[in-house]
């Protein structure tokens, strides 16, 4: 990823920079990528247009770095939640189910993720962002399934990438359904949980540690 040659320095600079990225993600959720204006970001983040343009070479640059920061922040939130859970099947189950818990963080996550997915149908920049992050997500889930296979919790016959796709694709579908209000969050969690048991061929539920489940 090409970074601008000028990076913010000092604590205040870093805070401002982070606030701009967070504001951008929020405005992408609210107004969509097409509707997001740099002048709105500047106003909402409380910085001058000049400073915003000093940090970010272009609108594309801003969107791309905001999406990266958004993704990293999500990863951190998941890591915190998964800390201390050892069982590889439970880890994966918690990771998948927590994204469909009825929580403001999740609502925002899905709004941003699916907005980039939508825009990726038309826009080359969004396509690159979405393909990259979707690829990382699929590889991450596949890697965890592999670990569960290595530990003999999941049958060796399960194809890791294929099973990962069969879990992630319906989650994105449910992401839309819950945002629109067609399906309740807890119903989506229950459906993904059922899919989880079926796709991974696990016999009986794994230990319930860390599961917040309706």
């Amino acid at each position: 990823m090409a970074k601008a040659s000028i990076e913010p320095s000092g604590k205040t600079g870093e805070e401002t920079y982070a606030r701009i990225l967070e504001t951008t993600a929020w405005l992408i959720a609210r107004d969509g990528i097409r509707g997001m204006r740099m002048s709105h970001v500047a106003a909402e983040a409380g910085v001058s247009n000049g400073l915003l343009h000093y940090y970010f070479a272009s609108r594309e640059d801003l969107v791309s770095r905001a999406f990266d920061a958004f993704y990293d922040k999500g990863t951190l939130r998941y890591r915190e939640r998964l800390a201390g859970i050892e069982h590889p099947v439970t880890r994966l189950r918690v990771e998948l189910l927590m994204s469909l818990e009825d929580h403001l963080d999740n609502r925002l996550d899905w709004m941003i993720w699916l907005e980039v997915a939508r825009d990726a149908m038309h826009d080359e920049g969004s396509r690159k962002l979405y393909q990259e992050k979707a690829g990382i997500w699929i590889a991450d889930v596949a890697g965890q399934i592999q670990k569960a296979k290595d530990a003999n919790f999941v049958p060796a016959s399960v194809n890791t990438r294929s099973a990962a796709l069969r879990l992630i694709a319906p989650m994105e579908g449910f992401g839309w359904y819950v945002l629109i209000g067609e399906v309740e969050w807890d119903e989506a969690v229950a459906c993904i949980d059922q899919a989880f048991m079926i796709e991974l061929g696990t016999v009986g539920p794994p230990p319930p540690e860390g599961i917040v489940h309706p």
Binding site: A169, P170, E172
Partner: peptide
């Protein structure tokens, strides 16, 4: 519901070209 959610999720990947 699980099958339509899967198709609705995977369809976007096909259009975008990530799958």
């Amino acid at each position: 519901l699980r099958l339509t959610a899967m198709v609705d999720g995977i369809g976007g990947h096909v259009i975008v070209g990530s799958l």
